[in-house]
């Protein structure tokens, strides 16, 4: 287990920021860390990094107690803060090199790692340029380069793609997947559900200082799915076909629009085969079939009552 949090409580005065948070993250995962604003994501991240003192509970990173082995643990964590955290008066190379040096890397290895990080983030040809001349996307990539120069086992990315162009976003998402392939575990927070959907293997959803759901994408979708929706385009429609479909076990509703059938069935009824058989038997042809499954957005909405970007 890369990260284990048990009964974590954090208060700011009377405000309970983290309310008995429990989570476990295994090695090699890319975990989407979701929650509306003020849910407790950043506070949780800060406690993992040792930036905020906790009131009670236990945090173990790489199997070691954070309180007892903070410096040792920090050596293997890389942080990509939400705000771009670089010095404008240092070149791209100097930024990466300086932050790398804080992790104990020295000499030729530091140079090698710094160049490697810049290459990885697509900034190698900008190594001597100052970040103040960079676009937003390039700054975000430099922000990541500074976090991975020391080859961390655990990378925490706090909204690393805010306000950037699609090209840079694609580059960053590919980088996250690549880093994961290279052995890093990634905790990824984002307000863009499609990013989480694309890269994350597991998801933790927080709200009001508590973990309200966790699991794989499919597990979470199953958690909120109470019915299955299917849209079938057919060559021709008849009243008898609709009645026949409505009579199939598990079908709750069947409606039409043009040559399309919208069918809602009970979750897990497994009646798609019977529906297609009925269509074929009626003399019509199936043109296309679309299964409508719950999205992560709908999962989030169902669980928190809020949209992710609210």
């Amino acid at each position: 287990m890369i990260l284990s949090i048990e009964n974590l409580v954090k208060r700011y005065g009377d405000f309970l920021a983290l309310d008995n948070v429990n989570m476990k993250i295994g090695e090699g995962e890319i975990v989407g860390f979701l929650g509306p604003n003020g849910a407790g994501k950043t506070t949780t991240i800060n406690t993992i990094l040792g930036l905020s003192k906790i009131d009670s509970g236990e945090i173990k990173v790489f199997g070691k107690n954070l309180k007892e082995s903070e410096i040792e643990i920090k050596r293997d964590i890389g942080i990509v803060p939400q705000e771009i955290a670089i010095y404008d008066d240092l070149t791209a190379y100097e930024n990466v090199s300086y932050f790398g040096s804080l992790y104990g890397i020295r000499g030729s290895l530091l140079k090698e790692r710094s160049l490697e990080a810049l290459k990885f983030t697509g900034l190698i040809d900008k190594e001597k340029d100052f970040p103040k001349k960079f676009s937003g996307g390039m700054k975000r990539r430099l922000n990541i380069a500074c976090a991975i120069v020391h080859h961390p086992k655990l990378i925490i990315m706090d909204e690393p793609t805010v306000g950037i162009d699609p090209q840079s976003r694609k580059h960053i998402l590919n980088s996250v997947k690549e880093l994961n392939k290279m052995g890093s575990t990634v905790i990824y927070t984002s307000h863009y559900m499609e990013e989480v959907e694309e890269i994350c293997t597991d998801i933790i959803i927080m709200d009001l200082g508590r973990v309200i759901a966790k699991g794989t994408k499919e597990e979470l979708k199953d958690l909120v799915a109470v019915e299955e929706r299917v849209k079938i385009e057919v060559s021709s429609l008849s009243f008898t076909l609709i009645e026949k479909i409505k009579g199939i076990n598990g079908v709750k509703e069947c409606s039409i629009e043009g040559n399309e059938l919208f069918i809602i069935s009970k979750k897990g009824s497994g009646n798609l085969g019977k529906i297609i058989d009925a269509i074929v038997e009626s003399g019509s042809e199936v043109v296309s079939v679309n299964m409508e499954k719950p999205t992560l957005e709908s999962v989030f909405l169902t669980l928190t009552g809020k949209k992710l970007r609210d």
Partner: peptide, 13 residues
């Protein structure tokens, strides 16, 4: 001001 506070405080120093 440069937002490097989190990065610095997260480093093993």
């Amino acid at each position: 001001y440069t937002n490097t506070y989190t990065r610095i405080k997260s480093a093993p120093i």
